[in-house]
Protein backbone atom coordinates (compact mmCIF):
# COMPACT_ATOMS: atom_id res chain seq x y z
CA UNK A 1 0.00 0.00 0.00
CA UNK A 2 2.78 2.28 0.98
CA UNK A 3 4.37 1.65 -2.40
CA UNK A 4 1.16 2.57 -4.24
CA UNK A 5 0.85 5.70 -2.16
CA UNK A 6 4.44 6.56 -3.02
CA UNK A 7 3.72 6.13 -6.69
CA UNK A 8 0.59 8.23 -6.49
CA UNK A 9 2.29 10.98 -4.52
CA UNK A 10 5.29 11.36 -6.77
CA UNK A 11 5.05 13.26 -10.02
CA UNK A 12 6.96 10.54 -11.81
CA UNK A 13 4.70 7.90 -10.30
CA UNK A 14 1.69 9.60 -11.83
CA UNK A 15 3.53 9.78 -15.12
CA UNK A 16 4.03 6.02 -14.95
CA UNK A 17 0.30 5.60 -14.37
CA UNK A 18 -0.41 7.87 -17.31
CA UNK A 19 2.03 5.95 -19.47
CA UNK A 20 0.86 2.47 -18.56
CA UNK A 21 -2.85 3.28 -18.75
CA UNK A 22 -2.16 5.11 -21.99
CA UNK A 23 -0.36 2.07 -23.33
CA UNK A 24 -3.37 -0.10 -22.46
CA UNK A 25 -5.74 2.32 -24.14
CA UNK A 26 -3.50 2.50 -27.18
CA UNK A 27 -3.68 -1.27 -27.52
CA UNK A 28 -7.45 -1.06 -27.18
CA UNK A 29 -7.60 1.58 -29.91
CA UNK A 30 -5.72 -0.77 -32.22
CA UNK A 31 -7.85 -3.77 -31.29
CA UNK A 32 -11.03 -1.77 -31.72
CA UNK A 33 -9.85 -0.63 -35.13
CA UNK A 34 -9.10 -4.15 -36.27
CA UNK A 35 -12.62 -5.13 -35.24
CA UNK A 36 -14.15 -2.13 -36.97
CA UNK A 37 -12.32 -2.71 -40.21
CA UNK A 38 -14.46 -5.81 -40.70
CA UNK A 39 -16.93 -3.24 -41.96
CA UNK A 40 -15.19 -3.60 -45.27
CA UNK A 41 -16.08 -7.31 -45.44
CA UNK A 42 -19.63 -8.50 -46.07
CA UNK A 43 -22.16 -7.23 -43.48
CA UNK A 44 -22.35 -10.62 -41.83
CA UNK A 45 -18.69 -10.43 -40.75
CA UNK A 46 -18.97 -7.47 -38.46
CA UNK A 47 -22.35 -8.57 -37.25
CA UNK A 48 -20.93 -11.93 -36.32
CA UNK A 49 -18.15 -10.16 -34.45
CA UNK A 50 -20.67 -8.02 -32.57
CA UNK A 51 -22.81 -10.99 -31.68
CA UNK A 52 -19.76 -12.83 -30.45
CA UNK A 53 -18.84 -9.99 -28.13
CA UNK A 54 -22.35 -9.54 -26.82
CA UNK A 55 -22.90 -13.19 -26.26
CA UNK A 56 -19.83 -13.62 -24.07
CA UNK A 57 -20.44 -11.24 -21.20
CA UNK A 58 -17.78 -13.02 -19.13
CA UNK A 59 -15.22 -11.59 -21.57
CA UNK A 60 -17.00 -8.39 -22.48
CA UNK A 61 -17.61 -7.00 -19.03
CA UNK A 62 -14.18 -7.53 -17.55
CA UNK A 63 -12.81 -5.89 -20.69
CA UNK A 64 -15.22 -3.00 -20.35
CA UNK A 65 -14.46 -2.55 -16.67
CA UNK A 66 -10.76 -2.80 -17.37
CA UNK A 67 -11.03 -0.14 -20.03
CA UNK A 68 -13.06 2.03 -17.73
CA UNK A 69 -10.40 1.66 -15.05
CA UNK A 70 -7.65 2.56 -17.52
CA UNK A 71 -9.56 5.61 -18.66
CA UNK A 72 -10.26 6.50 -15.07
CA UNK A 73 -6.61 6.23 -14.06
CA UNK A 74 -5.53 8.08 -17.16
CA UNK A 75 -7.92 10.94 -16.53
CA UNK A 76 -7.51 11.17 -12.79
CA UNK A 77 -3.71 11.26 -12.94
CA UNK A 78 -3.92 13.70 -15.84
CA UNK A 79 -6.18 16.00 -13.85
CA UNK A 80 -3.94 15.79 -10.82
CA UNK A 81 -0.78 16.44 -12.85
CA UNK A 82 -2.40 19.29 -14.75
CA UNK A 83 -3.42 20.91 -11.49
CA UNK A 84 0.11 20.56 -10.13
CA UNK A 85 1.55 21.91 -13.36
CA UNK A 86 -0.74 24.92 -13.27
CA UNK A 87 0.17 25.57 -9.66
CA UNK A 88 3.85 25.49 -10.56
CA UNK A 89 3.47 28.67 -12.62
CA UNK A 90 1.04 30.98 -10.89
CA UNK A 91 2.16 34.01 -12.87
CA UNK A 92 2.22 33.85 -16.65
CA UNK A 93 4.60 35.55 -19.06
CA UNK A 94 3.40 38.70 -20.73
CA UNK A 95 5.26 38.22 -23.99
CA UNK A 96 3.12 36.15 -26.29
CA UNK A 97 5.43 33.55 -27.73
CA UNK A 98 4.77 29.90 -28.37
CA UNK A 99 6.75 27.71 -26.02
CA UNK A 100 10.05 27.08 -27.67
CA UNK A 101 10.24 24.11 -30.03
CA UNK A 102 7.28 22.37 -28.45
CA UNK A 103 4.88 20.75 -30.91
CA UNK A 104 1.24 21.80 -30.86
CA UNK A 105 0.26 18.25 -29.95
CA UNK A 106 2.54 18.24 -26.93
CA UNK A 107 1.18 21.54 -25.69
CA UNK A 108 -2.47 20.61 -26.06
CA UNK A 109 -2.56 17.15 -24.56
CA UNK A 110 -4.96 18.17 -21.83
CA UNK A 111 -7.31 19.84 -24.29
CA UNK A 112 -7.23 17.02 -26.83
CA UNK A 113 -7.69 14.62 -23.93
CA UNK A 114 -10.77 16.45 -22.69
CA UNK A 115 -12.37 16.51 -26.15
CA UNK A 116 -11.59 12.84 -26.65
CA UNK A 117 -13.21 12.07 -23.31
CA UNK A 118 -16.39 13.86 -24.32
CA UNK A 119 -16.28 12.06 -27.64
CA UNK A 120 -16.02 8.74 -25.88
CA UNK A 121 -19.16 9.56 -23.91
CA UNK A 122 -20.98 10.45 -27.10
CA UNK A 123 -19.63 7.43 -28.93
CA UNK A 124 -20.85 5.11 -26.20
CA UNK A 125 -24.29 6.71 -26.20
CA UNK A 126 -24.33 6.60 -29.96
CA UNK A 127 -23.33 3.03 -30.70
CA UNK A 128 -23.18 1.11 -27.43
CA UNK A 129 -26.04 2.39 -25.33
CA UNK A 130 -27.78 3.37 -28.59
CA UNK A 131 -29.66 6.32 -27.19
CA UNK A 132 -31.92 7.29 -30.10
CA UNK A 133 -31.84 10.99 -29.24
CA UNK A 134 -28.15 11.36 -30.11
CA UNK A 135 -27.98 9.69 -33.52
CA UNK A 136 -30.02 12.30 -35.40
CA UNK A 137 -31.33 9.74 -37.88
CA UNK A 138 -34.81 9.27 -36.47
CA UNK A 139 -34.04 5.56 -36.27
CA UNK A 140 -33.60 3.64 -33.03
CA UNK A 141 -30.41 1.63 -33.64
CA UNK A 142 -31.70 -0.81 -31.11
CA UNK A 143 -34.34 -1.75 -33.65
CA UNK A 144 -32.06 -2.70 -36.51
CA UNK A 145 -32.01 -6.46 -36.98
CA UNK A 146 -30.11 -8.64 -39.33
CA UNK A 147 -32.70 -10.47 -41.46
CA UNK A 148 -31.01 -13.89 -41.37
CA UNK A 149 -30.06 -14.27 -37.74
CA UNK A 150 -32.48 -11.79 -36.29
CA UNK A 151 -29.60 -10.36 -34.19
CA UNK A 152 -28.65 -6.68 -33.97
CA UNK A 153 -27.42 -5.39 -37.31
CA UNK A 154 -24.22 -3.55 -36.51
CA UNK A 155 -23.35 -3.03 -40.11
CA UNK A 156 -26.58 -1.20 -40.75
CA UNK A 157 -26.16 0.75 -37.56
CA UNK A 158 -22.73 1.98 -38.67
CA UNK A 159 -24.01 3.00 -42.07
CA UNK A 160 -27.02 4.64 -40.58
CA UNK A 161 -25.05 6.42 -37.89
CA UNK A 162 -22.41 7.81 -40.22
CA UNK A 163 -24.76 8.81 -42.93
CA UNK A 164 -25.49 11.95 -40.86
CA UNK A 165 -22.72 14.20 -42.11
CA UNK A 166 -22.23 16.24 -38.98
CA UNK A 167 -22.00 13.13 -36.84
CA UNK A 168 -19.31 11.84 -39.16
CA UNK A 169 -17.57 15.18 -39.06
CA UNK A 170 -17.50 15.17 -35.26
CA UNK A 171 -16.27 11.61 -35.41
CA UNK A 172 -13.49 12.55 -37.82
CA UNK A 173 -12.41 15.54 -35.75
CA UNK A 174 -12.37 13.46 -32.62
CA UNK A 175 -10.41 10.70 -34.24
CA UNK A 176 -8.04 13.32 -35.55
CA UNK A 177 -7.54 14.67 -32.05
CA UNK A 178 -7.15 11.16 -30.72
CA UNK A 179 -4.40 10.59 -33.22
CA UNK A 180 -2.55 13.80 -32.42
CA UNK A 181 -2.92 12.80 -28.80
CA UNK A 182 -1.44 9.43 -29.63
CA UNK A 183 1.26 10.80 -31.89
CA UNK A 184 2.70 12.64 -28.91
CA UNK A 185 1.41 10.36 -26.20
CA UNK A 186 2.90 7.12 -27.46
CA UNK A 187 6.35 8.67 -27.77
CA UNK A 188 5.92 10.33 -24.38
CA UNK A 189 4.96 6.98 -22.92
CA UNK A 190 8.35 5.57 -23.88
CA UNK A 191 9.95 8.67 -22.39
CA UNK A 192 7.99 8.45 -19.15
CA UNK A 193 8.87 4.83 -18.65
CA UNK A 194 12.48 5.54 -19.54
CA UNK A 195 12.39 3.20 -22.54
CA UNK A 196 14.19 5.59 -24.80
CA UNK A 197 17.71 6.77 -25.51
CA UNK A 198 19.39 8.82 -28.18
CA UNK A 199 19.48 5.87 -30.57
CA UNK A 200 15.82 5.01 -30.20
CA UNK A 201 14.42 8.47 -29.63
CA UNK A 202 14.00 9.41 -33.30
CA UNK A 203 12.67 5.95 -34.19
CA UNK A 204 10.15 6.06 -31.40
CA UNK A 205 9.01 9.54 -32.40
CA UNK A 206 8.59 8.52 -36.04
CA UNK A 207 6.98 5.23 -35.09
CA UNK A 208 4.45 6.98 -32.88
CA UNK A 209 3.57 9.42 -35.64
CA UNK A 210 3.24 6.69 -38.26
CA UNK A 211 1.07 4.63 -35.93
CA UNK A 212 -1.10 7.67 -35.25
CA UNK A 213 -1.55 8.36 -38.95
CA UNK A 214 -2.39 4.72 -39.75
CA UNK A 215 -4.89 4.63 -36.94
CA UNK A 216 -6.47 7.83 -38.19
CA UNK A 217 -6.71 6.50 -41.74
CA UNK A 218 -8.16 3.25 -40.48
CA UNK A 219 -10.86 4.84 -38.37
CA UNK A 220 -11.60 7.62 -40.83
CA UNK A 221 -12.05 5.17 -43.70
CA UNK A 222 -15.35 3.95 -42.24
CA UNK A 223 -17.40 7.18 -42.06
CA UNK A 224 -15.80 8.39 -45.26
CA UNK A 225 -16.77 5.26 -47.13
CA UNK A 226 -20.30 5.51 -45.68
CA UNK A 227 -20.62 9.09 -46.86
CA UNK A 228 -19.39 7.92 -50.23
CA UNK A 229 -22.25 5.48 -50.37
CA UNK A 230 -20.99 2.19 -49.02
CA UNK A 231 -23.72 -0.02 -47.58
CA UNK A 232 -26.44 2.52 -48.34
CA UNK A 233 -28.67 0.05 -50.08
CA UNK A 234 -28.21 -2.60 -47.45
CA UNK A 235 -28.98 -0.22 -44.61
CA UNK A 236 -32.09 1.06 -46.38
CA UNK A 237 -33.24 -2.49 -46.76
CA UNK A 238 -32.71 -3.22 -43.11
CA UNK A 239 -34.33 0.02 -42.02
CA UNK A 240 -37.41 -0.37 -44.15
CA UNK A 241 -37.63 -4.06 -44.98
CA UNK A 242 -37.99 -5.39 -41.53
CA UNK A 243 -40.99 -4.48 -39.49
CA UNK A 244 -39.14 -3.16 -36.61
CA UNK A 245 -41.27 -3.02 -33.52
CA UNK A 246 -42.84 -6.37 -32.75
CA UNK A 247 -40.52 -8.64 -34.60
CA UNK A 248 -37.60 -7.03 -32.91
CA UNK A 249 -38.83 -7.32 -29.41
CA UNK A 250 -40.06 -10.84 -30.03
CA UNK A 251 -36.71 -12.06 -31.24
CA UNK A 252 -34.95 -10.24 -28.48
CA UNK A 253 -37.14 -11.75 -25.86
CA UNK A 254 -36.63 -15.17 -27.36
CA UNK A 255 -32.88 -14.93 -27.47
CA UNK A 256 -32.57 -13.20 -24.11
CA UNK A 257 -29.94 -10.90 -25.45
CA UNK A 258 -29.31 -8.14 -23.09
CA UNK A 259 -28.45 -4.74 -24.15
Amino acid sequence: MNLLLQIWRSSLGKKYIMALSGAGLFLFVIGHLVGNLQFFLEPAAINRYGHFLKSTPEVLWPARLGLLALIGLHIVSALRLTAENKAARPEQYQAKVAPKDASLASRTMAMSGAIIASFIVYHLLHFTVQTPQVNFTGTDFDQLYEPNSGGADIYAMIVCGFSVWYVSLFYLISIGLLCTHLGHGVAAMFQSLGLRNHTWAPRIATGARVAAILIFLGYASIPVSVLLGRGKEYAKRIQSGVSPDKAGSAIKAAKGVEK
Binding site: L81, S106, A188
Partner: peptide, 9 residues
Amino acid sequence: FGSCTVTGS
Protein backbone atom coordinates in the same frame (compact mmCIF):
# COMPACT_ATOMS: atom_id res chain seq x y z
CA PHE B 1 7.91 22.08 -9.71
CA GLY B 2 5.54 20.78 -12.36
CA SER B 3 5.95 17.49 -14.19
CA CYS B 4 7.26 16.68 -17.63
CA THR B 5 4.87 16.49 -20.55
CA VAL B 6 7.71 15.93 -22.99
CA THR B 7 7.22 19.14 -24.94
CA GLY B 8 10.98 19.56 -25.37
CA SER B 9 11.01 23.30 -24.62
